[in-house]
């Protein structure tokens, strides 16, 4: 990274962190730390589904990812303090989503090898994705279009920026928890987040 860009990122990250902290004070602390693992999972399971769905764009895959994340959390980390459950759970879910995306990519490559990647005229077909025939989950949501726009914009971000935005901004983890869930330093989280916000600002300039 160039020094000028790095300085700009640092400035942006600092400002972003301040803004998120202010936002977090209003929105994050509305949920007390649950006393039991059951209560914790009940608290996060639907949002986890939305987060996985937003990234995978497939409801069944999202369900599989959340189910597996819950199972792994209970199996391996049930004895951890309750304050650690959130970063552990979101970290597990993040890795499951990445795994599923990689599998999908490999599947797409295999389909390409088998001749499914090009049409009769030799033009490349779009990347294969599983068909999702289930009814839309947002039928009753008032802000369907806004949510869809946001999800589409978030999905254009590079993976690490997307993860930082979703964990820090949407889920409301603090910097340390986000870093733990992403397996990187807090500084990296700030940099990813700053870049993500920079991109989203441009993409969502007309967004409400």
């Amino acid at each position: 990274m160039e020094p000028e860009n790095a300085a700009r990122d640092d400035t942006g990250a600092t400002a972003m962190n301040t803004a998120v902290d202010a936002l977090g004070a209003d929105m994050v602390l509305d949920e007390a730390t649950p006393a039991t693992l059951d209560a914790f999972l009940a608290q996060v399971e639907r949002r986890a589904f939305r987060m996985a769905e937003m990234q995978l764009r497939h409801r069944e895959d999202a369900m599989d990812a959340v189910q597996d994340a819950m199972l792994r959390l209970v199996k391996h980390y049930r004895d951890k303090p309750a304050t650690e459950w959130a970063p552990l759970f979101w970290g597990i879910l993040r890795r499951r989503v990445v795994d599923l995306q990689r599998r999908r990519k490999v599947r797409s490559i295999v389909v390409g090898w088998l001749g499914g990647g090009h049409d009769k005229e030799g033009d490349e077909l779009p990347v294969w994705e599983p068909a999702d025939q289930s009814p839309g989950p947002l039928d009753r949501l008032h802000d369907v279009q806004s949510y869809a726009d946001m999800a589409a914009a978030v999905n254009t971000l590079p993976r690490r920026q997307r993860e930082a935005f979703m964990l820090r901004m949407l889920e409301g983890l603090d910097g340390k928890e986000t870093a733990q869930a992403m397996g990187c330093s807090e500084g990296s989280v700030k940099t990813h987040l700053s870049r993500a916000m920079h991109t989203l600002r441009d993409q969502l300039e007309n967004w409400r």
Partner: peptide, 28 residues
């Protein structure tokens, strides 16, 4: 932007359809 995005995300989480909510509960 942050506030709006989070509101939509939380609202979407609250408005998961009953069938999906049931499956999530069963998975838990």
């Amino acid at each position: 932007l942050q506030q709006r995005a989070r509101e939509l995300y939380r609202e979407a989480g609250r408005r998961v359809d009953p069938a999906t909510a049931g499956r999530l509960r069963a998975a838990r």
